[in-house]
């Protein structure tokens, strides 16, 4: 177990780094114009980064174990949630239906 001091080092340094990341371009582009290539590249950051966050949380049944299959309840739930997000653009509905689908899929896969 790490010492108490270690926790505060992590909290203060990560807190500061997170804050600087959040402030970075807000502060920079208040002073200088945004280069066109940066503006073009930034358009793809949400799609690319969010996909990179979501996929591992869904397709791995355990760390390092790929389970991209209909027998993985998380894959079934994520596909259902994606359909809801596509149709409704509603975050609450996406999360609610995703969770209900996950529970149903877990129950069905355990049963059959």
């Amino acid at each position: 177990m790490t010492s108490a001091g270690g926790w505060w080092v992590v909290i203060l340094v990560v807190g500061l780094l997170n804050y600087l990341s959040r402030l970075s371009f807000i502060a920079l582009f208040a002073k200088v114009e945004m280069p066109p290539l940066v503006a073009r590249a930034l358009r793809f950051v949400p799609a690319a980064m969010l996909m990179a966050i979501v996929v591992p949380a869904v397709v791995f049944s355990a760390p390092g174990t790929l389970a991209f299959s209909y027998t993985n309840p998380k894959v079934v739930a994520a596909l259902a949630a994606a359909a809801v997000a596509w149709r409704t653009k509603n975050a609450v509905a996406t999360m609610a239906l995703g969770m209900v689908t996950l529970w149903l899929a877990q129950w069905l896969i355990a049963r059959y």
Partner: peptide
């Protein structure tokens, strides 16, 4: 991940 999925789509 569902929350991020709602932002992704």
């Amino acid at each position: 991940p569902l929350c991020f999925l709602a932002l992704l789509v």
